[in-house]
Design a protein around this nucleic acid. Sequence first.
DNA 1: CGGAAGTTACGACATTAATCGTAATAGTAG
DNA 2: CTACTATTACGATTAATGTCGTAACTTCCG
Lengths: 112, 112
Amino acid sequence: MTGSQETWLPQPDLDAIDVGTVLQALADPVRLQIVRALDAVGESTCSALDVPVKVSTVSHHVHILRRAGLVSTRLDGTSRPSRLRREELERRFPGLLDAILHAPPPAPPREP
Amino acid sequence: MTGSQETWLPQPDLDAIDVGTVLQALADPVRLQIVRALDAVGESTCSALDVPVKVSTVSHHVHILRRAGLVSTRLDGTSRPSRLRREELERRFPGLLDAILHAPPPAPPREP
DNA sequence: CGGAAGTTACGACATTAATCGTAATAGTAG
DNA sequence: CTACTATTACGATTAATGTCGTAACTTCCG
């Protein structure tokens, strides 16, 4: 049919992931920024992400996100674009990802 | 009427709290355990919580949770019982606390 | 086949954070 | 007023973790 036959980097079964692992993965500001960026663009490689750290560090963070079950990475030639595991996460932790991604930004401190 | 006149430890305005701060506070296993315990019993002091660390460490973790806007602490004589800021958290981050507290435990790895 | 580009694994360094023991503080009962 | 209890602030130690530079690896294209 489609003949897509895509290959993916090995990723954990979400049922075996504890919610604490997910929270720990999302605790880092850079990783949260990566998750938000992936939510916005849908799919991206490490080098294409606009984050204030070096590419090798981005790769490290994406690796942690993948181990925590948050993203899946596709093999496409020399490129390895990653995306959020939306549907699976919604089934495993209903409402969690949405609650985090749609959280309103903090109000600035009141100035006199 | 009731004349309760309760006093509380200073706590931040939830509107000024970033979701990243909340996630970072919940990232530690001990703190997540504390939050679950408070969810179960409603209110508790540091020394009454059943966690595998010393009381001074529990106090440290509760302090972090309070700074992150997750718990509020009441002054009651020599006792300082803390509780979750449920309603406020629900208004600030709808669905977040429930998603975390009601997350199903991980499935054990398949054994042959 | 060989050069070029993108990605990640590896090792090292710096920073952060968790934990504990002890001391200081505040309230309560006798 | 004094002894006792509960809590937290403080300082020190140890364990994690984020960051980077470099090298190795894979794929694509001429």
